[in-house]
Computed example of a mutant assay.
Amino acid sequence: KINSGEADVIIAGGFESSSTQPRRGYNPNHPDYAGDDWYSVAKFMPGIHRETVMLEGAELAAKREGITKEEMDSWVLRSHALATQAREQGLLQNIIAPVCGAVKDEGIRPRMSQRLLDRMPKVLEGGEFITAANSCLINDGAAFVVLCSQKYLQEHGLKAQARVLGSTACGGDPLVSPRTAVTALQKLLAKHGLQEQDIADFELNEAFAVIDVLFARSFPHSVDKYNVFGGALAYGHPYGASGGIITLHLLEALKQKGGRYGAASVAAAGGVGTALLLERVE
């Protein structure tokens, strides 16, 4: 909208209140109506409507990609450790706004350990891989950024943190939706003629540790510049806010480390992946 001249400034982001999430039901006239059959998770693909569909997608992705629980465990520990460090050192204090007295993320577990991970039961009946630890929490949250044109920036004497260079989206198998976070990222870099080494910081929505493993396999030289403050395994995944959250984390990583290019990516239910490329402004 800004590029086309429709707007000069836009507040972009979202919020989620999972704690007040209503139960839903189909209208009796709908073909999927089955009496008092309530649900909270939307229908993401034709023919399948189950509360566990996202967990099933992560389970299937792990199975198809040959990902072990042990591989995922290391990412769970890393995410909580980095999030704990970020909180203790106040690395994200610049972008955190207290709401209703809440001043810290409640999902971060400083005492997360291998012993605890080994005790975690599988969340799916007959499942082999996905546990409550290697999948994200469902929680409340909000995050927003301000986008504006160069003209608006100059007229109001503002200073930008970064420039949006572009974005991309891709479609994939809805039964293994975690894959699309990496697919979208690869498409984004190819579109802009960039290589892995050109990106100073990567932020992916860590809905499942499966995504971490897929990223590390595709970008093996970038693990140390990936989700440097920890990810959604620690912070949680308030669906409507997660895009804004990882964008803010990416802006902070670029600023604190002095990097030039940063890339963010999200895998969405239904097999859709979205990625964003930013360039830090001096």
Rank of each mutant, 00 (worst) to 15 (best):
Q21P: 00
G127N: 02
M112S: 05
T52M: 06
L277M: 11
A7G: 10
D201Q: 14
L116V: 12
V223D: 08
D212V: 01
H156I: 08
S265G: 09
A86P: 00
N94E: 15
A253P: 01
K191W: 03
L158I: 11
Y235S: 07
Q186T: 08
V99D: 05
A62I: 10
N227W: 01
R87H: 00
I245M: 12
A81E: 14
W75R: 00
H30V: 11
P31Y: 12
H237W: 07
T274Q: 12
Q197D: 13
V53M: 12
E128A: 12
A268T: 04
Y152D: 03
S40V: 13
C136P: 02
Y261P: 05
A81Y: 07
A81R: 15
N134Q: 10
K159D: 11
E51L: 11
G171W: 07
S74A: 13
G57P: 02
Q114H: 09
E6C: 06
H192F: 15
V210F: 03
E88Q: 14
G236S: 02
N94Y: 06
G171F: 10
R163S: 10
S17G: 12
K69N: 00
H80R: 11
R64G: 03
L233R: 01
N3Y: 01
V164F: 11
A268K: 00
A97N: 06
Q85S: 11
E70P: 00
L214A: 06
G171M: 08
E282W: 03
A133Q: 06
V103N: 13
N3D: 09
A160F: 07
K255Y: 03
L276G: 00
G141S: 11
A42V: 08
A232Q: 05
Q195N: 14
T247V: 11
K104T: 05
P46V: 06
S222T: 13
E56N: 08
D8R: 11
A162F: 09
A142H: 09
W38K: 10
A269N: 12
K255V: 09
A12N: 08
N29Q: 15
S222M: 13
F202R: 01
Y39T: 05
R24I: 07
Q21R: 13
R115F: 01
G127P: 04
A61T: 15
L158W: 14
L276S: 05
E71I: 11
T168C: 15
R115N: 12
E282S: 14
A232H: 01
G231S: 08
A34D: 15
Q186R: 12
G193R: 09
D198W: 07
G244Q: 04
T168E: 04
Y226W: 15
L116M: 12
L117Q: 04
M45G: 06
S79V: 11
E206W: 08
D32F: 07
V99W: 04
V123Q: 02
G66R: 10
G244D: 00
G243S: 05
E16S: 09
A62G: 15
V266Q: 08
G230V: 03
F229E: 03
E65Y: 01
R109W: 02
